[in-house]
Design a protein around this nucleic acid. Structure first.
Lengths: 207, 207
DNA sequence: GTCTATACTACGATAGAC
DNA sequence: GTCTATCGTAGTATAGAC
């Protein structure tokens, strides 16, 4: 093997290892963020779960905020991937329902990182992250387009501002009703999903 | 004045002062809890806002958790007071709507204390507080009764478990959609309330 | 019951050897 | 890039004088 082949391979291997470790870190952060939220999550916990020293974590990410931000970016990328995979031939309303159900499934499985609804240091970091904001915008644009189509064809209430519909769907990803019903242990995950989907799209009123 | 008259009056005055101070404390806690949440709220801030020393706070309440708990109990009592005042002749659905709209109004005005949705030390304290649990149960019973009546007469979807309806209404008190729409500054508080009431009871689908 | 001053702890972040 | 050890700070809670 000549150097021209060996060196790139070695470098690629190193980079791959680094990426693997970082994605393992992000995976742990994601779980902890879903479990306890940003404030309650400690950097020590993350380090312990990944199995490395805390100082090593800080070689990968400069702060706790950046750590959480990376997890949020990954979650956003997953959402983009799911959205891209929704069959184009489906009706706009069905596309919206598919995405909403998917996000709630993640939440029920404890894989949806939950950021604090209140203002915090994390908010600032997220707003300043190009990767996060780009992902958020792309997701918003995709859903916003479907919402407008659905309203145009009369399957979603056209008298609601599209942005209100968008926020309402986003909010399902952190809906406390999901965990409350799960805690009750009276219903399966599928039943819980069906109920919350029903209240979301059909409302509480009888039809 | 003989001692039999003077002493009770003095004591009553003292007690009244104490109660006034404590209610001032609780009021501050309520605001801070609504603004930043339990974790981000510091005891120093509470003391500073009330205008007394931190150590004095701890003479009134034994811990930060008890402080927040007292605020939650007061919020629950307010809810009970509102519920008791709802006209009995109204239809069950209208009663539910009135309470829901009232809670969301409080939230929009920054007067609804928000506890962490995740598990925390506060949860344990609340669960162990008889005053809080009694209030919660009374509110739940009142709303639960109205929900069953509304379902019986077909104004609320009878195929939903009553408890799912109850949780869905409770969740409106901490709905992030309210603040998101408020941040957008495109709509008045009344318009925001109308929109969220619509999505809650009528759903997103067109009718 | 109010204050000032302080003890104690948890946690984010860093230094420095390897 | 990994570790051990440590710093600095923020924040809950308490001691003790008045």
């Amino acid at each position: 093997m000549n150097p021209e082949e060996t060196k790139p391979q070695k470098k690629s291997f190193k980079v791959q290892m680094l990426a693997a470790r970082e994605s393992a870190i992000i995976e742990s952060v994601n779980r902890l963020l879903a479990d306890k939220g940003f404030d309650a999550m400690t950097v020590d916990e993350v380090a312990a779960e990944v199995g490395i020293a805390k100082a090593s974590l800080y070689k990968h990410f400069p702060s706790k905020e950046e750590l959480a931000c990376a997890a949020m970016v990954m979650a956003m990328q997953r959402a983009q991937a799911f959205i891209a995979q929704v069959p184009a031939e489906q009706a706009p309303l069905d596309k919206l329902k598919a995405v909403t159900r998917w996000t709630m499934t993640l939440k029920l499985q404890g894989q949806m990182p939950s950021l604090p609804s209140q203002n915090s240091s994390l908010r600032a970091t997220l707003m300043g992250s190009k990767a996060y904001m780009d992902g958020l915008m792309e997701v918003s644009d995709a859903l916003g387009g479907w919402i407008e189509q659905a309203q145009a064809q009369g399957s979603v209430n056209p008298s609601l501002p599209a942005v209100a519909v968008l926020y309402t769907l986003f909010a399902r990803a952190c809906d406390p009703v999901l965990e409350f019903l799960k805690m009750g242990e009276q219903h399966s995950d599928e039943q819980i999903l069906d109920m919350v989907m029903s209240t979301c799209f059909d409302g509480l009123n009888a039809r």
